[in-house]
Nucleic acid binder design. Sequence first.
DNA 1: GGAGAAGTGTGTCATAAGTCACATAACTTT
DNA 2: AAAGTTATGTGACTTATGACACACTTCTCC
Lengths: 224, 224
Amino acid sequence: MSKQAEFAVILKMNPMFADLGADELQRLSNLCHTQHLANGEVLFQKGDAGDALFGVRRGQIRIETGASDGSRLTLNFMGPGDLFGEVAVLDGQSRTADATAGEASELFVLRREDFLAFLEREPKVAIKLIALLCQRIRWQSERMEESMLQPLPVRLARRLCALAADFGSEVHISQEQLGVFVGAARESVNRQLQAWRKDAILDLQRGRILLKNMTRLTSIARNE
Amino acid sequence: MSKQAEFAVILKMNPMFADLGADELQRLSNLCHTQHLANGEVLFQKGDAGDALFGVRRGQIRIETGASDGSRLTLNFMGPGDLFGEVAVLDGQSRTADATAGEASELFVLRREDFLAFLEREPKVAIKLIALLCQRIRWQSERMEESMLQPLPVRLARRLCALAADFGSEVHISQEQLGVFVGAARESVNRQLQAWRKDAILDLQRGRILLKNMTRLTSIARNE
DNA sequence: GGAGAAGTGTGTCATAAGTCACATAACTTT
DNA sequence: AAAGTTATGTGACTTATGACACACTTCTCC
């Protein structure tokens, strides 16, 4: 399979490009380049211009940010098949976090200028994209308000489910970072996790959470 | 001033269309119609297809929703110069609330099909719009999380400031509805308002709040 | 292998805000 | 004007969660 075809598959998996036609997708993915990163190499830093969209072909990219106290917090891990920077490539705003390779990696790169030129040639795609961004806006404004008003267990369960969807039932994250994710104190996170461990919903290890009963966890996430 | 020129001014005031060029704006506003509504007439209801964007030329439109207990809650008042349905016109999703005329009104109407055809003819505008929607997505995801984590007084002050911007220092809203706005219990809203009344920041009447010291209120909204 | 750092577990306390209960005040309807 | 209805004011209680304090464990590095 060609590099471009491989990239097309990744794009197709992302909701933002999911309802593009096969022909449109193909013309779009023809614009991509690839880029290699050594372990630890920096892809971009907070403040850099958002001039491209990336898809992970192999390896791992860590999205992290320097907290105000100087410590680093990992916000996300992107593995093969993951796409990131979709919003930046569209609006060109500067990056809001750093990205570094967690291992030797190869990325698909779609540059902003190429993408914009493509949209100008294919306004129908631009319109589809607009509809999609609108959906996202609606979705955000519905979920966010709702979501933040939910009690901690629900927020926590939702986040764990989301992480599990990406990385399987063994989530590698510290309770501290989990607290940042869900906007709660580390201690509160710990207490909730303890309760769930007693209920055999999950198991805890240093820097790791093992989801044992996703069924119950998702039902908590749905707020019973 | 022609109807179209008047509409162009309203569009220009909305962030979503603010950075369109004068020529683009003119061609866009040429697509508008007008529509008259008698007092109490229904413009659209929850679930209707979002097939147009509206601008208020004169009169008042109430955006309201039937709460689960059957009572009606007014979510917003739109006065002359206000624009609503910007998102619906782009993505065509169904309305999430009802809109009825609070008095005899005249509206500018920009139909979705006309707008989409326009975007297809002018892909540069579509791209500007995409950038704008992205900004909005970023802004939402930044603000929302932050905003809901703010203590009640801050959220309340922000909402009051926003309402004041639209309707001047006399905000016509019940404390119950204000509670829905900021996601808090009516009683908590009342207690906070009482405290502010003691501090001469505002005055309370049945169904009405009189802002007396916007300076202090905005400083509370900024969280000191 | 010892020292320190980073992550985790848990108790105690303070506080913001929700809930319930009821009083009062202001409009509406008949 | 009497009665009902809606909006507001306020006290008492409960609860979730953040804050602090500190013990304990596991990793890392010299």
